[in-house]
Design a protein around this nucleic acid. Structure first.
Lengths: 124, 124
DNA sequence: ATAGCATCTGGAGTTCACTCCAGGTCAAGA
DNA sequence: TCTTGACCTGGAGTGAACTCCAGATGCTAT
């Protein structure tokens, strides 16, 4: 798979794909004899994982660290497990922040909808 | 309330508080005769709102826009309502991204815990 | 009155995660 | 073979959200 195909498939620019690779968020991608990237299914899997994690807000460095550990083989399994748990905990916190803000917005929206209908806005 | 008190209360640095004000995320804070910031309860309320929204990832500019509208009075109620709904929709999407990543992490963590116990890691 | 600490402002600096660019290479069609 | 369009690299540039700094001013306790 060429980089442009992968770009279309995942909605990431070619620059971003090259950046992810350079940053170590995905292992080095397979190349053609001429040196062009030729993504295998597995390469695509890494891209998809990176996209998913970045989409949730994990830091580039955390993802890269995971990949570094994965490349070192089975002896890093416990470390990887720890890393994943730490990231999970962070996402859990983020989830709570987002939920809190959403609850807040919902309340405000309800007040405003009331105000749009009746012309009276409670509090301010 | 002095800026250092507010800083402690909300866990935001003084620089951040000044930045939030300069960026328009909170309306101008009340000052002492000498020109020092003297946060009222209402000022604190705005700080708390800004912190909550930023914590969830809303952009500074979106929050500032809301404050700008609020300052213009009741004629902007419908606009503010629209803005809040747009931000809510964005948070909803973010929530889904985070949930997807968490599910993914949970699955991986389960595999790794299994591997830590048994020494056998499924897939890679 | 003065030492000393808190706070002020405007503006420069930093970090993160891309994004863009120049100048060159690769590969498929006419 | 030549052209054309996709792809390459290293490195510079960008935008967002802070963060830091210097030099000045405000308060408070001796």
């Amino acid at each position: 798979m060429t980089i442009s195909e992968v770009s279309r498939k995942y909605g990431l620019t070619q620059d971003t794909l090259r950046y992810y690779e350079k940053a170590g968020m995905i292992p080095p991608v397979h190349r053609t004899a001429g040196g062009l990237r030729d993504y295998t299914e597995e390469d695509c899997g890494w891209v998809e994982l990176a996209k998913c994690m970045r989409g949730a807000g994990l830091q580039v460095e955390a993802i890269a660290e995971y990949v570094r550990l994965a490349k070192k083989g089975d002896k890093t399994i416990a470390d990887r497990c720890r890393l994943l748990k730490a990231q999970r905990a962070q996402l859990q916190e983020q989830l709570q922040s987002v939920e809190a803000a959403m609850a807040r917005l919902d309340y405000k929206i309800a007040c405003y909808e009331e105000a749009v209908k009746t012309g009276v806005l409670t509090w301010h």
